[in-house]
């Protein structure tokens, strides 16, 4: 099962200081698939993404990406390897222009390639391409979220970790962002999507994991029959 995996997480433990948040998490993402990671508040979804992208050290277990271990890799090394994390809360740089925000995502790329990458990323989101000279702080929440995703795209990731891209967005914009994800998958990019909106995530995802109290409690194809009921039980803390 693991042979064709792009990301392979095995028995991962991680947490903050003394507080263990993740307990023996196993998870696989294959190339060109969208995996939804669902679960109630405080289950450890954000923590898992942070641990994978090098923002948080883990305490036990292992994770490999494209065949090499992620142990000790910092966010920069992860991004260079093609594992890109778009953090929660559309945290773009408010004092910099849209173009500069994207340029920073391409910080260590050759100067010549930078503008082409920025162009490509802007093409995906015409809404912000029209505002490319404006400051990040002048954008609406939805536009900031698009900019954050565009920052991730500048890297041309092999795997995109997305943390709650729907937060604070209108339903129309959520559909818009999820549609982009589907297009990315069709172009060969894998996506690990953390979401609160269960139905919308299931509609776009190929597979789904549910995390509760730091443990994976469910792993199923997104179209599996009776999934909604199993998720409901998982959310209420009972293994499904």
């Amino acid at each position: 099962m693991a042979a064709d995996a792009l990301l392979h997480v095995e028995a991962l433990d991680a947490g903050y200081g003394k507080i263990g948040v993740l307990h023996r998490v196993d998870l696989i993402v294959r190339p060109a698939e969208i995996v939804a990671l669902l679960g109630p508040n405080g289950a450890g979804k954000t923590t898992l993404l942070r641990a994978l992208s090098g923002l948080l050290p883990w305490t036990a277990g292992d994770a490999t990406f494209a065949g090499s271990s992620l142990r000790g890799a910092d966010p920069r090394a992860c991004a260079r390897a093609g594992l890109v994390h778009v953090v929660e809360g559309h945290r773009v740089f408010t004092q910099l222009s849209v173009t500069d925000n994207l340029a920073l995502a391409a910080y260590d790329l050759p100067r010549g390639e930078r503008s082409a990458r920025i162009e490509d990323a802007l093409q995906v989101f015409p809404e912000i391409a029209a505002k490319h000279t404006e400051k990040g702080g002048a954008l609406s929440g939805g536009q900031q979220q698009m900019l954050a995703v565009a920052q991730g795209l500048v890297r041309r990731p092999r795997l995109l970790l997305l943390d709650e891209p729907s937060a604070g967005l209108s339903p129309v914009l959520v559909d818009r962002v999820l549609l982009v994800l589907a297009r990315l998958r069709d172009a060969g990019t894998a996506v690990l999507l953390v979401e609160q909106l269960v139905e919308k995530s299931l509609a776009v995802a190929d597979r789904v994991y549910a995390l509760a109290q730091g443990r994976i409690v469910l792993n199923a194809p997104a179209q599996a029959p009776g999934l909604a009921a199993r998720l409901e039980r998982a959310y209420l803390g009972v293994a499904a």
Binding site: S53, L55, P75, R76, C78, A79, R80, V84, H85, V86, V87, R91, V92, F93, T94, Q95, L96, D100, A103, L104, A105, Y107, D108, Q151, R155
Partner: peptide, 22 residues
């Protein structure tokens, strides 16, 4: 670009790190 990277780090160190800035 270095100057912008300074501004970015000053505004949101965590986001700058997540973005892969050195």
């Amino acid at each position: 670009l270095v100057g912008r990277a300074f501004i970015a780090i000053a505004e949101d160190n965590f986001a700058a790190r997540a973005l892969g800035l050195p």
